[in-house]
């Protein structure tokens, strides 16, 4: 049952990958400002939250090495996010219908 010792933490991210991820993050930062300023549609807030999620995903998967972790951490992270979303959702079942 003991987990394989060569997983996750032994991964050494290459400087190049990190640099590309950083460049992508910067581009997304510019994109999110443009979306906000141009006001393409009433969905720009949602679009910006989507861009934020992509940025967060890049940080999580590459900077934080989540890509190289086992199912356990990925699964629990997913569970935590679902949980938080459900708590907010259940609260809104009150706020919206009050």
């Amino acid at each position: 049952m003991a987990l394989n010792a060569t997983e996750g933490g032994d991964h050494i991210g290459s400087y190049r990958t990190y640099f590309f991820i950083w460049a992508a993050l910067m581009l997304l930062l510019v994109a999110t400002i443009v979306v906000a300023k141009v006001e393409v549609s009433k969905y720009s807030v949602l679009l910006n939250l989507f861009i934020a999620t992509v940025k967060a995903g890049l940080v999580l998967f590459f900077f934080m090495h989540l890509k190289y972790e086992n199912w356990f951490l990925k699964g629990v992270l997913f569970m935590v996010l679902v949980m938080l979303a459900s708590v907010i959702g259940l609260t809104f079942s009150d706020v919206w219908y009050r």
Partner: peptide, 20 residues
């Protein structure tokens, strides 16, 4: 984790939330 609302049935929560 998802049942906390039953402490608040008389607090003025929405009916929808109370039923859920």
């Amino acid at each position: 984790y998802f049942v906390w609302g039953h402490h608040m049935f008389t607090s003025g929560m929405s009916d929808t939330a109370r039923i859920i």
